[in-house]
Amino acid sequence: MFSTFRGLPATVRTLFAGTIINRLGCMVTPFLVFFLASRGVTGAQTSLILGALGAGGLLGPAVGGLLADRIGRRPTMLIGLVGTAVAQGALFLAPGVALMAAAALLVSATNAMVSPAVYALMADSVDGPRRRQAYALFGWGINIGTSIAGVLGGFLAAHGYWLLFAVDAASMLAYALVVATRLRETGSAARGGDGSEETGAGYGIVVRDRLMLLVLPVLGVQSFVYALTEAALPLAISGSGLSPTVYGTLAAVNAALVVLLQPLVTTRLAHLPQLSVHAAGSVLVAVGVAMTGLADGVAGFVVSVVVWSLGEVVVAGISATVVSHLAPPHARGRYQGALNWTWGVARFTALTVGVLLYTAAGPAVLWWTALVAGVTASALSLGLAKRVTARTRHALAA
């Protein structure tokens, strides 16, 4: 499996190892509802805290992308990682709902700051043709760490929720140590600039990029469809009268498929047009998600998960690669921040509008929406392929 990623620079391999360490400790959020219940937090109060958690996921990428270009990739990662560790402690110790909500906002915001800096750092370190392998390796590390964390989290929660917070904070600090000792700066700080080479400030350079403004909504719709696997799949399982254990089993199936197949699929598809591959994979995701509406037992749910998991494997690393090619070198952090912000919006929409459609309009409406939206977005991405390819060739030749 590792032969797929042979030859990537040490920076990418270090980020891969650090990401696994980091993701091994991402256990608080999945068990947050149970922790809040143990503290006597009511359902309405829990919704407030979860809303704050979602809001932080929208704020963090925008701030992280801006800082990655302004002060550098490494400082931004260190601020995010150390800040998340501190916020985890604040969330555990918070004496009231308002402080819990504020801490939850900080947890998700600081944690979400890290990814734009990581993606920008990898784009700085890897030449264009190999960026997809680099981003796929990063995603592979996320899945490996998350898979182990899912099992470990259940064990630790049974022995005390404080263990979840302690391990999460320790993993963040361990990753920060890796960043501080094993990585070198490649962004504006390394060049002696301030990341403001373009006219205007902040995300103006992204907003003025017409092609980027066409690409982001398409990727956002595709991300929304995928995010329904987190938002609506549990509702479908519950509605079928199945136990939460089934959801855990399906999550394990998804993780196993991604971890086992991603290196092979990434190698096989590396030389094909990336937007065409992404469109095909996104259709698989949309079909798999829509098949959830046909499932009437465990076997049906397993088949649907296998289909959208294969789609997830196919698209791995492509969206970040496309955006890295569109971004000017001095604005890579902000372009990746915009991409991560789009993902945050998609996930937030799936958790709100998606669940509302399921409960108010009915499951069939949601599954048909997912299928039509996913296929339409994939068709639109193919329509943009010629312009993206031309821009990519120009960027790689420069």
Rank of each mutant, 00 (worst) to 15 (best):
Ala290Ile: 12
Ala255Asp: 02
Val289Asn: 09
Leu261Ile: 08
Val302Lys: 03
Gln274Arg: 15
Gly297Cys: 06
Gly288Gln: 08
Ala256Glu: 06
Ala279Gln: 09
Leu272Tyr: 10
Ser304Leu: 03
Ala280Ile: 07
Ala256Trp: 03
Gln274Gly: 09
Trp308Arg: 01
Asp296Cys: 02
Ala295Cys: 09
Ala280Tyr: 02
Trp308Glu: 04
Val259Leu: 07
Leu257His: 13
Val289Glu: 04
Ala256Cys: 06
Pro263Val: 08
Ala290Ser: 14
Met291Ser: 14
Val306Arg: 02
Leu257Pro: 07
Val302Arg: 03
Leu264Cys: 03
Ala280Pro: 02
Leu310Gln: 05
Phe301Pro: 13
Leu275Glu: 05
Ala270Gln: 11
Trp308Phe: 14
Ala256Arg: 04
Asp296Phe: 01
Val253Glu: 07
His278Ile: 00
Val298Gly: 05
Ser309Ile: 04
Leu272Gly: 08
Thr267Tyr: 01
Leu284Gly: 15
Thr267Pro: 01
Met291Pro: 12
Ala280Met: 00
Thr292His: 02
Met291Arg: 04
Ser282Met: 05
Gly288Arg: 08
His278Leu: 13
Leu294Asp: 01
Ala256Pro: 13
Val259Thr: 12
Arg268Glu: 03
Met291Ala: 15
Asn254Val: 13
Gly288Ser: 07
Asn254Pro: 15
Ser276Cys: 04
Ala255Pro: 05
Gly288Met: 07
Ser282Ala: 13
Gln274Val: 12
Pro273Gly: 09
Val305Trp: 00
Leu275Gln: 13
